[in-house]
Design a protein around this nucleic acid. Structure first.
Lengths: 191, 191
DNA sequence: TAGAGCATGTAATAGGTTACATGATTAG
DNA sequence: CTAATCATGTAACCTATTACATGCTCTA
């Protein structure tokens, strides 16, 4: 049986402080969107279950003009279960990177089309890198007192390393593909 | 509506030549297992559907002492659909890397435990890197005449780049964590 | 004789996304 | 007047893994 990571992605955010489902979604969307995301369709049912299992407690904060906020607070039991998971060895990770899968069948399309695809990939990762760099700065400045900062910084630094590797690889791949194109076109000329 | 990548992961392998479900599974498990994998529970039903849609044809090859092999061959229509997908822009990719998720909640466990986790991560990626390097060599030597080689080489080179980035990041993270441990332990001594 | 490899397949289950429903407020 | 933000939630759907069933051969 496989355990849902999302369960801990939700419980983990609650370890930062009392929060609503809406907040949790926002946290992922506005920070580590590059390597994690959650949808409401998962978050809300999981919060309900966490409360049912005694890993979190629920309270409703009413607001004027805005919908009520359902705030969940992690319990001691919840924190323990989270810690247990954090210490557990992590299973092997398989990226399932669509761009790579496509490349494996690159022979089926022209070299020029392959180049287009990899350029698209490179440009997206360049953007992602810039975003991560900005976020790293923003977190450093905005959340000065938060004790989680060192870990967020490590996470952002991961994003920088990985995106740089993507970009470097793409550049190398583009070079190789250009050489391939040259070979095929020169062969055409001489034939 | 989202389109299944697995469908194309299967169709794509068929572009290499006629193959059985068993072969397809084996191909992924023995080559790019680091960034892609498929299970029989997906492969067999998809093959059946591909044949039903006219993207592949099925033939049965009987064997002595071994079960029959159900060989699927890609059709012109199948190749066209594959090419169409290959040229299509690829959506944003979210890694969902469990090790990173855990790190985000690192404050909940001791620095020493964080170090253990990251060392585990680093060691696994070191292994993975070695495997990729070996595979790259093996493919170069064993499949000399295969016209897909340049693309496989690019895929392996991707694996090398990304794993090196993982390892470098882990090393940096370990350094940072060691400094954190030093700080906390020295504070304990002076208090 | 136990286990691995060969080979196909299905059913149960779990994991996850998308679209929809509701409804007020605020900014452009 | 339109769109976004705030906020919760569900139902339908798709995607993916795991366990199981079958059964022969070869190796340790």
């Amino acid at each position: 049986m496989k355990k849902s990571k999302t369960r801990f992605a939700v419980l983990g955010i609650l370890s930062y402080g009392p929060m609503s489902g809406y907040d949790i979604k926002k946290f992922y969307a506005q920070s580590v969107a590059g390597f994690w995301s959650e949808s409401y369709g998962q978050i809300y049912p999981i919060l309900k279950r966490l409360a049912g299992e005694g890993l979190a407690t629920k309270s409703v904060r009413e607001q004027e003009g805005k919908p009520d906020r359902h705030i969940y607070t992690i319990t001691e039991k919840g924190r323990e279960e989270l810690q247990q998971w954090l210490v557990e060895p992590t299973g092997r990770h398989i990226g399932r990177h669509e761009a790579l899968l496509k490349l494996m069948f690159g022979k089926q399309i022209s070299v020029a089309d392959n180049i287009i695809q990899i350029k698209r990939f490179r440009d997206r990762q360049r953007n992602e890198l810039k975003e991560v760099e900005e976020l790293k700065e923003r977190f450093k400045n905005e959340k000065v007192d938060d004790p989680n900062i060192p870990f967020w910084q490590l996470a952002f630094s991961y994003g920088e390393h990985v995106n740089r590797a993507y970009i470097e690889w793409a550049e190398e791949a583009l070079e190789a593909l250009c050489k391939m194109e040259y070979k095929t076109s020169s062969r055409k000329k001489t034939s």
